[in-house]
Design a protein around this nucleic acid. Sequence first.
DNA 1: GTCTGCTTAGCCGGTAGGGA
DNA 2: TCCCTACCGGCTAAGCAGAC
Length: 412
Amino acid sequence: MAKILGYQLSETSIKLLKFLFYYRGMTALQLAKMYFKSHNITGVQKSSAHNYLRKLKDQKLVTSKKIEADNYAGSLYYLTQAGLELVKSLLNIEDGQTGTGYILANEDKEDTQADLEYVIYKPPTEQIHHHLILIDFFVRLRLMSNQQVDHRLSMYASKAYEYNGKEAKIRPDAEVVLPYDRHYYIEVDRATESHSQLIQKFENYRHYFEYAEEINEKLPAAIVFVTDEKQQQYGMNRRWANVLAAYLKTMGDYALKVNLFMLPLNKVDHFIRFETYRPQLNRKVQTLLEKTLIQKGNYKDVQTFKQPTDYSSIDYMIAFTQTQYHIYFIRVAYEYDASIFSGFYHFINNLGDIHRKQQTPYKPSGVSQAIFYTDERPFLPDYMRKNYDLPPELLSHLELLSQHLSMYKLPL
DNA sequence: GTCTGCTTAGCCGGTAGGGA
DNA sequence: TCCCTACCGGCTAAGCAGAC
């Protein structure tokens, strides 16, 4: 074993130290999954990870804290002050260096990591469960087949801004980047925030988006609520209804610009692929519908209109016979996807304009909705029975959504 | 000889279950 | 309710084998 900067370090132990640096600490199991690049770690591989961690602990580079949270067993391993300084040396991080924090870019030899103080690096020992769900999310990102998704942690994704002359800050738990420079803010959701706290969270986001537009900063594509897998089994629909209502009440026009999703950890892989291929899925739906409406629907012409803030996604289509036209609201959507609701609300508000633009002698023959999905059917909460104090106009629009609605499954 | 992956044995703390 | 026992998972320690 080579002696490096006064410590006995093998290649494996250096790699483990870097993981602990990038992700601010994790369990031995999570570390083993990252290192061995597998969700199904053998007992031997786990034991091996324990052996390396033990050696790093003996050299006072790593320390651990027993986990007392539900769902997770074992200990949280993280760097000591000496361990942090060692990794900074190994990564050539200079004093006072700043960086974007993107992890895969850094592994690809680009300097992205900042010279963080130990108090900022040290993992949150008070909210270990929350932190470990986030690490599970990163494990799933790193283990995705055929796709590299760069990501960064909260300390890099947080953004300070000014609102009404006061300083404020948004603190997403993480940020990921998909092709076409689409950024997604990740929020780990343990269903512990009340409806009013969710509203405060979204108000904070909206204030930041107003500020970001003022200074010409690009808005994220979406905010993504990630839950643990237990929540998927128990109460995912209720939680989504609650989160979605807070978002729709608070975000205003930003609901059209920044989408909202919710997904459990075990759907991360599918969600990333869905979002990555959403432009292609929209093109597929456009081709399919134009062909089907003309061949089987006896229409002579079909016009497609794209979403005002996302030119790759379909907003609505108009199909013409010799004398009439029919309007179709179209969405390619994920199971828990706010664009169905924000998009439909905007669509209904603009329906008068859409009708006015149609030339005589065509007469309107009606409006229908079609939603295309790739995994589970998108969930439509029944807000008529729930009291979330949604504005009456929004409620009446959402009631229309489920009338004349069809859903179709697409292969991904 | 060094490094790495792997095997085996055993300690420790927590907990479920049964009996008094 | 208390105590005992068995069991389990997390973790440690020692050592072996193969590749270099």
